[in-house]
Amino acid sequence: MTRMPIFALALAAIATPLAAEEVNVYSLRQPELIQPLFDRFTEKTGIEVNVATIDKGMVERLVNEGDRSPADLVMTVDIARLAEVVDAGVTQPVESEVLTANIPAEFRDPGNQWFGLTTRARVVYASKERVADGEVTTYEDLADPKWKGRICTRPGTHDYNLGLTAAMIEHHGIDYTREWLKGLKANLAKKPEGNDRAQVKSIWAGECDISLGNTYYMGKMLEDPEQQEWANSVRIIYPVFENGGTHMNVSGVAMTKAAPNREAALKLMEFLASDEAQQIYAELNYEFPVKPGVALSPVVASWGEFTPDTLNLMDVARSRPAALKLMEEVNFDG
């Protein structure tokens, strides 16, 4: 299958008329996580999907492109990122009976500007050898001095950790969360760096005993011969907030205001919310489907059951700026 090079997508789309049956996607998601879905969609419909992976500056790019933007859809992770594209005025509402029926209300924007496609839990990876069952049960407990020198994490300013911190603010307020961050920082075994998989490697290497991570990385590590040993050295623990459940976040999609291929883009959105696509997400990406009734991957199911937190995701998104301010105030990554 021939695809337009990523670097040429925007220029070519502006310079020449786009084919009627194609969709252009700006994505913050790792390409390998979503390409199988696009391949299946093209196989079913004949509609080509061109993907531009944009690590930074997606909103600024869409704002600058305005009505000339070649992008039909934006795909991203983290509720704050979804809220950001909506707040920037670069998306449009989408009315679809399929999306409304397949995606529960808590996983879509009240104004139909964005739609969640998968959820993921922010969990604790714990050493099988050095952490006893029941030794960690809550996020609040991570600030307890008993963990001094035992915790690893990626940077606090990363979206995933900012989301968790924003949820802590929603549960307990600014002052409590500031002290919690100070306690968590004091318990770090080393400076925050790397990604979630790197933290599990650090546990395997004996550099720390527990780390924060998203659930699906366990599945990805188990697939990789080089990383299987890391994965097998830890177990997943689903912590909860003292007055809530396990922190959840979403990946999602929004249609851009410009959307030159609106009908084809809507077809792709509806496909991503279908049983087939949700099962692909579950089986290949080890994520939690948002569509009720779609089975978890057996690997994910083996990690046990948990109670998701019930905080409104838009409330969490609104507390993200405060979370970032606190991270910088306590110099978490310093």
Rank of each mutant, 00 (worst) to 15 (best):
V131A: 04
S233V: 05
F7I: 14
Q30N: 10
D175V: 09
F107E: 02
E229C: 05
P225V: 04
E270K: 01
Q199R: 03
Q228D: 02
P145E: 12
P308T: 02
R68L: 07
V86A: 14
S127T: 12
L296P: 04
N50A: 08
L142E: 05
G304R: 11
A323R: 03
S69H: 03
E305F: 11
E287S: 11
P321C: 11
R154C: 00
N214I: 08
S127C: 09
I6Y: 10
E170S: 15
I151A: 03
T138Q: 06
M75R: 04
H171K: 14
A186N: 10
R122K: 15
H247L: 11
V299F: 15
N112S: 10
E305K: 14
R68A: 13
T118A: 02
V94S: 04
L33F: 08
H158D: 14
V131F: 06
S319T: 04
G111C: 05
P308L: 06
G149H: 11
K267I: 06
T118Q: 04
R154K: 07
K325W: 13
R130C: 01
G89L: 14
H158E: 13
Y216F: 13
R68P: 01
G156H: 11
Q35F: 00
A189M: 12
L62C: 08
P239H: 11
S27I: 05
E229N: 12
T256G: 03
T177V: 09
A259M: 07
Q278W: 00
G89Y: 12
A273F: 00
R154L: 04
Q279N: 07
P225G: 06
P36Q: 00
Q35K: 00
I174H: 15
A254P: 08
S319F: 02
L272S: 02
D39F: 03
V51Q: 09
L28E: 13
I280D: 01
I280N: 00
P260V: 07
P321A: 10
K182L: 09
T246E: 11
T256V: 09
G173V: 06
G245D: 10
P93A: 10
D141E: 14
A80K: 01
V90G: 10
